[in-house]
C-alpha cells in the first residue's frame, strides 16, 4: 500500500464535496477499499473517511411500511436489528451467510451496495424487495430504484462526487421471500449464483413475483420472463420448469472459475425452482 492523506469530514454532503478528483476515494468500512489498495488497483492520494458524518446515516428505522437504512449502518447492525427481522426477515437470513462476522462488523450497507461486485449478496435481495437508494451530492441528491444503480462489473451510475446516503426497503408485508446462495467450492466461497425470489401468493397461486439473480451475471439482474412465467400461475413442476427455462434463456450468464456458463444456466433452473418452493413451503 502507498501512503495517502486521510480526511474526516463531519457531514455526508461535505464528504461528497471532497470527492472532486479520481485520486480521492470515500472510505466507509473500508474492507473493499483496503483490499483494492493492497492489490495496487486503487492508489488514492486522499481517502475521505465517512466515519464522522451525521449519526442518522448509521441508523435503521421503520416507518410507513418501509425500512430506512442509513448507508453507514454496518451489515452486522442490520443483521441484529429487530426492526429488520420484523419487516424483512429475508435480509437477516441472507446476512448470516454473507462474508464473515468480522467483515459484517465493519462493512457498511452503502459500501456493500456501491461496490457493485456482482457476487455481493444483498443487492439481489433488496432489488427483489423493491428497494430504492438515495444518493447525495454536494448540491442535492437523487433517488432511484436500486436495480438502476448497476451498469456493469464494479460499475454504477454513481458520479464521482455522489455517495449512497440511504436505502429504503418496502417491508415484506404479506410477501414471502427467499435467497439461495449457491457455492460450488467451499461453503464460504463467493457464490456461483445468487437467486432472490419475492412472491405474493395464496397457497400455490402466485399473484406477483420478483426474481433477481446475482454472481452469474455482470450485474444483479431481474428476470422478467421468469417472473411472467410465475405470475398468475398455480405453481407445479411444469410451471417451475417453464420459469427455469425462461430464466436460463433470458439471463446473460457468464462462466468463470466457479463454473461454466452452461453449468450455471442449469444451476439457475434448479435454484430458481428451489427458491420458489422454499418460499411457498414457508407459508
Amino acid at each position: 500500500m502507498t501512503p495517502f492523506e486521510l480526511v474526516e469530514p463531519h457531514t455526508l454532503r461535505e464528504a461528497a464535496g471532497l470527492l472532486a478528483s479520481a485520486e480521492v476515494r470515500p472510505l466507509a468500512g473500508g474492507t473493499a477499499v483496503m483490499l483494492m489498495m493492497k492489490m495496487g488497483v486503487l492508489r488514492p492520494a486522499r481517502l475521505v473517511s465517512l466515519r464522522a458524518v451525521e449519526k442518522r446515516y448509521s441508523e435503521i428505522a421503520a416507518a410507513g411500511g418501509e425500512l430506512r437504512i442509513g448507508a453507514l449502518a454496518t451489515l452486522s447492525a442490520l443483521e441484529r436489528s429487530p426492526l429488520v427481522a420484523r419487516a424483512a426477515p429475508v435480509i437477516a437470513q441472507t446476512l448470516r451467510m454473507l462474508a464473515n462476522v468480522r467483515v459484517r462488523n465493519v462493512a457498511t450497507v452503502g459500501g456493500h451496495l456501491a461496490h457493485a461486485d456482482p457476487h455481493m449478496d444483498l443487492p439481489p435481495v433488496l432489488i427483489a424487495l423493491g428497494a430504492r437508494v438515495s444518493i447525495i451530492d454536494p448540491a442535492g441528491g437523487r433517488t432511484l430504484p436500486l436495480g438502476e444503480l448497476y451498469t456493469g462489473y464494479l460499475e454504477t451510475t454513481l458520479g464521482r462526487n455522489e455517495l449512497v446516503a440511504e436505502v429504503t426497503v418496502p417491508a415484506q408485508g404479506s410477501r414471502r421471500a427467499a435467497y439461495l446462495k449457491c457455492t460450488t467450492r467451499s461453503a464460504d466461497d463467493w457464490p456461483a449464483l445468487g437467486v432472490a425470489v419475492v412472491l405474493e401468493a395464496d397457497g400455490a397461486l402466485v399473484r406477483d413475483a420478483r426474481v433477481v439473480i446475482s454472481a452469474a451475471t455482470d450485474t444483479p439482474t431481474r428476470l422478467a420472463a421468469a417472473e411472467n412465467a410465475l405470475r398468475g400461475a398455480r405453481v407445479d413442476e411444469a410451471v417451475l420448469r417453464r420459469a427455469g427455462d425462461a430464466a436460463a434463456s433470458e439471463a446473460a450468464v457468464i462462466g468463470d472459475q466457479h463454473g461454466s456458463a452452461a453449468y450455471k444456466r442449469e444451476l439457475l433452473r434448479v435454484c430458481l425452482a428451489r427458491a420458489v418452493r422454499a418460499v411457498l413451503d414457508e407459508q
Binding site: R185, S186, A187, D188, D189, W190, Q257
Partner: peptide, 11 residues
Amino acid sequence: LAEYKIPGMRD
C-alpha cells in the same frame, strides 16, 4: 484464498 478455496468449518 478468495479464489483458491480451502476447507472451512462448514465443509
